[in-house]
Design a protein around this nucleic acid. Structure first.
Lengths: 331, 331
DNA sequence: TGATAATTTGAAATCGATACCAAATAAGCT
DNA sequence: AGCTTATTTGGTATCGATTTCAAATTATCA
């Protein structure tokens, strides 16, 4: 006795495979009495449906792929949690893949996910290239981008209003009297870095502050990056009174470097982060930051994906969630 | 043209399905010249193997289930990352499920994972009941418990030495002169809470300190729990000079409450946490804590699972990883 | 009551691969 | 050359469900 199959249930209950299948799928076209009988037999035999077989025939796996940079980046757990909650509710499981911000890894992940025939994908794309995404489109596999988007490519996505987020952060610093705001931005191949740059510049322009390109740094993703930039800035005597960091993680590095250099926060240097990750509040000086609705990014993204999978929506859906400034003590 | 199948590749290349299948699986029993030809055709047609079909026949899905309490609990991302890295390397994908520490959710998760025919499971069990795990065993599905274990049940697991961890933490506090150490433990249905309790008591005994049950609290899992316990302890004038918390998360709550009550750390009250999560260092006063090798818990757990799946190991494997005390400033 | 429609059931084909065994071909050796 | 063995290939059954379409049964109503 290897495993009880639908066949076994059919034989024992005396009904056909078709009928048994209908019962187990809760197909309404079946006599309640029959249903009852079949269910009892299934129960008694300890029948466990084989979803692999079902998937092969029905061409649905009730599984979706979630491709992110790194679950250890405190930005992502909430996103993934949002996805999983909605996915579970709708009957999907999620396969999680980390790319470490490497295009090749993203491509590999998408490949196996395609081969495993996931019903759809939620992707926080690396954005160094996008051939792999075009391939998804060619395969007609529904997918939704999370947190980043490719502007001219007309792909479904859910993002946050980063122009506004960066604008608010920068303007807040300006209103506090800062004119020399060091902007440690992320890699410019990401849409969010480009948009935050736009927000930063917009705030400067509207407040008649001339852009100083020496105050623009890019490519920061991790704590070390923030740390390194500050160390270098200080050793090269760069003049700045405030720092706007690409992420809270980067801001943490900034704060660490500042502390080591004996610069006081927020008096010597004001610091504003981005993301509003947990524990940003538990710093020596709670971090002022721009809040991103991370959970909603995931949950709403999954809802959109679900619609994409089940309804035939042709137009590209673009969702933009609001950001908001969280004022605490670091600026 | 819906999708290119192995059949199509066979027809176009002129070889049989069997041969084509062998080529695509890298079976060595095939003429290199044939292999070359078939691969070219597959490439040209844009053939994408259907792993669902393969899984049905081969009874292997190259997918494993990962069941944890909550990816948003900062303890888990590293664990999951460790799992995923090794899994990917060995050719597996991971399906992630959150249980929120609820038995019913765990049971549901295991059910769908069984139905999806995962090759194995990594589980951080809720431990309120374990019928679902016995069912896994009955189904002969390999699984490894992570971070928690059921002592008399002889199940494979990978855990940390929590008796020693709690012992070290407690003894450290004692050596610092503390005699009244409030122990805010986790729920006693978890093996780790019970072991930490044992470590705590052992340290007291070895140092001739009488156990005061009023200093024992249990059931704490989240920040709020730590916060609440301290508030209540202080309002009821409980006498303590140190706190040993079940987790860093709980310790954060403790610290918050302490701060609100105007008690200084570490002079009025010393605090020690557990887990050594990221950002524990970035507190006002960096947190003294017990380090758990989270990544290794995941990666080694996955390695063990892989062996369990591929070799027929009958004896139960129990792995115990070392904990270590991280001395910082909070105690 | 008899014709028609609705409900319920079943038989067979199918999803796309792998497994198993047999056949064909090539290689090795006395 | 002739026989044995190794290598390579092919045919068919199979994994375990769903789908499609037809048949049987029951219900509806003039």
């Amino acid at each position: 006795m290897s495993h009880i199959t639908l066949d076994d249930v059919a034989k024992v209950s005396g009904f056909s495979k078709s009928t048994v299948s209908r019962v187990l799928r809760n197909d309404p076209n079946v006599n309640p009495i029959t249903k009852e009988k079949v269910e009892q037999v299934a129960q008694r035999l300890g029948y466990i449906p084989n979803i692999v077989a079902r998937s092969l025939r029905s061409k649905k796996t009730t599984t979706i792929g979630v491709v992110i940079a790194d679950i250890c980046n405190p930005f992502f757990p909430s996103v993934v949690r949002g996805v999983e909650d909605v996915a579970r509710e709708k009957g999907y499981s999620i396969i999680l893949c980390n790319t470490d911000e490497k295009y090749e890894r993203e491509k590999e992940a998408l490949n196996t996910l395609i081969q495993k025939r996931v019903d759809g994908l939620l992707i926080s794309p690396v954005q160094k290239k996008f051939d792999d995404l075009l391939e998804l489109r060619r395969q007609k596999i529904p997918f939704v981008l999370i947190g980043r988007h490719f502007d001219p490519l007309e792909m479904d996505h859910i993002v946050t209003d980063d122009i506004r987020g960066a604008f608010m952060a920068t303007e807040y610093l300006i209103k506090k009297g800062h004119k020399k705001i060091l902007f440690i931005n992320g890699p410019l191949y990401t849409s969010c870095a480009r948009e935050r740059m736009a927000g930063y510049k917009k705030a400067l322009v509207e407040n008649n502050i001339k852009l100083d390109t020496k105050l623009l740094k890019e490519g920061a993703l991790k704590m070390e990056d923030g740390y390194r930039v500050i160390k270098k800035a200080i050793s090269s005597k760069l003049d700045f009174t405030a720092v706007f960091a690409f992420s809270d993680l980067v801001a943490f590095g900034v704060i660490k470097a500042l502390k080591e250099q004996g610069r006081k926060m927020p008096d010597d240097v004001a610091v504003v982060g981005y993301d509003n990750i947990d524990f940003g509040f538990s710093l020596e000086l709670p971090l002022t930051t721009v809040h991103i609705p991370k959970y909603e990014l995931g949950s709403e993204g999954m809802k959109l994906l679900h619609r994409k999978i089940n309804e035939k929506i042709n137009e590209t859906q673009k969702i933009v969630l609001d950001t908001k400034l969280i004022i605490r003590d670091s600026a």
